[in-house]
Amino acid sequence: MTAESMVHALRRTTELLTPDGVLIDLHPTTDFPNLAIIHRDGREEPLGPLVSESARDRHAAADCAIAATIAEGTLAREAAAIFVFSRYSDALDELADYVNAKWTTRFDDDLREAARRRLTPGCRLRLWEYVSIQALRAARTEVSS
């Protein structure tokens, strides 16, 4: 989806919202997702990012689209925050297959091998990323008397 089509989608949402309605947008930030091993003793060992320029470009386009609709006066930002979203798995191949099936990002073979070398009995894998949440409302046009 291009930034232009995202702007179009955002404009459509304002048509579907009630006048006091709220639009919640959730999308990952432009930071790459990160892989880590959580060892049985609780120690977390970072393994590195899952690099995807296309995913980063898409998230940047989402940021631009929201900024554009605010700048044009369609939407007004009411609240914004960033949180960490994590996925956990006991099996490296399961996690890699999930990423390759569901994401535009490829689970890099080098990262998979690096992770495989560090696996310890009873460990878990954590794949985490930063996610942006924004609450937006249709901007109101002030009528002067």
Binding site: T13, G21, L23, I24, D25, L26, A65, I66, V131
Partner: peptide, 21 residues
């Protein structure tokens, strides 16, 4: 997809774009 979805204007109090932009 959202581009095919049709609904009357002002139908929703909350719209969530769930990782979909």
């Amino acid at each position: 997809g959202f581009e095919e979805f049709q609904a009357p204007a002002h139908s929703y109090d909350v719209i969530i774009l769930s990782w979909s932009l």
